[in-house]
């Protein structure tokens, strides 16, 4: 059969279309960072994998990629944590309760939580990098019996930069989870650790061939965290990092998020360190 051009289908009309979500809650995490809770207009469950992201749209201002930072209750709510640094994130952060935001997604590959069942898990977050890790923490805690030892290491610049303070208190209160929090610079009330997040590794002893590590934060933080994990003997393919790059489309078309041979939007944002070890940490790649 000859494939006639006229038989070629027209596709992709859904590619850039978004759905409206209603803002139902907003929590101020730090002076410039907010967690926005939204509800889909229908009654369907919102399906996503921890570690995936959505493109969020503020009317007339634009669209940006934001990691999903939580899914509380019955699956009809979804949370994103937004730091107001550019025009779109500022507009998202100032969205009022009851207003609507556009959403496309979910996109990308998340944390390999299924693979890690039966294993120990160590989660390492730096600053706002805790946001895409939070749904993974929630899921592990929800299915706690399926995992072994569970560590959460979290570092921020100052105590006021710590996200999810109520969660941190809950996680710390659990007997089956070891949460360690550190800040680069304390204040008069701070009684915890001082130092970058990698200094927390001296307090834990991982079983390298029985542990998965999920890491997200600034690249420099991830670079030194990977080093610490390797020092403890973790193989590259048990270390997972979440990468960030400029993104315009979220679907592998605009070209902006390229990272070596990868499109972060569709091949990531979560990568096994073994996939990216030859380019990760290289300047300006």
């Amino acid at each position: 059969m000859i494939a006639e051009p006229s038989l070629r289908p027209i596709g992709g009309l859904e590619t850039f279309k978004m759905e409206w979500y209603r803002v139902v809650g907003k929590a101020r995490e730090t002076p410039d960072t907010f967690t926005i809770r939204m509800k889909a207009r229908g009654n369907g469950e919102i399906a996503f994998e921890p570690g995936q992201f959505n493109m969020l749209y503020a009317y007339g201002v634009g669209e940006v990629p934001i990691s999903i930072s939580g899914a509380p209750f019955n699956g009809q709510l979804i949370e994103h944590t937004v730091r107001a640094v550019g025009p779109v994130t500022k507009a998202l952060a100032s969205a009022r309760i009851g207003s609507n935001l556009g959403l496309r997604g979910p996109f990308g590959k998340g944390w390999p939580l299924k693979e890690a069942e039966g294993q120990d898990v160590v989660i390492v977050g730096g600053g706002i990098g805790l946001a895409p890790l939070r749904p993974a923490i929630q899921q592990i805690i929800r299915k706690r019996e399926r995992y072994g030892k569970f560590y959460i290491l979290y570092g921020a610049r100052t105590p006021s930069d710590l996200l999810y303070k109520r969660d941190l208190q809950n996680w710390r209160g659990r007997l089956d989870t070891q949460l360690l929090v550190t800040v680069d610079k304390g204040d008069e009330k701070w009684r915890g650790y001082i130092g970058v997040v990698t200094t927390l590794f001296r307090h834990i002893k991982l079983e390298p061939n029985n542990t998965y590590a999920y890491v997200c934060g600034p690249e420099i933080m991830m670079k030194f965290t990977v080093q610490e994990l390797k020092n403890q003997g973790l193989p590259d393919d048990r270390i997972f990092i979440s990468m960030e790059r400029n993104m315009k489309c979220g679907v592998g078309i605009c070209g902006h998020c390229q990272f070596g041979p990868f499109f972060i939007c569709k091949d990531g944002p979560v990568f096994s360190y073994s996939e990216v070890s030859n380019i990760f940490g290289r300047r300006e790649v």
Partner: peptide
Amino acid sequence: VLLGGPYVDPVYSTKRKHVF
């Protein structure tokens, strides 16, 4: 690049359809 998926570009897909 534009039709290979998983997402298809709607503009390219439409223009490409009727090309001789």
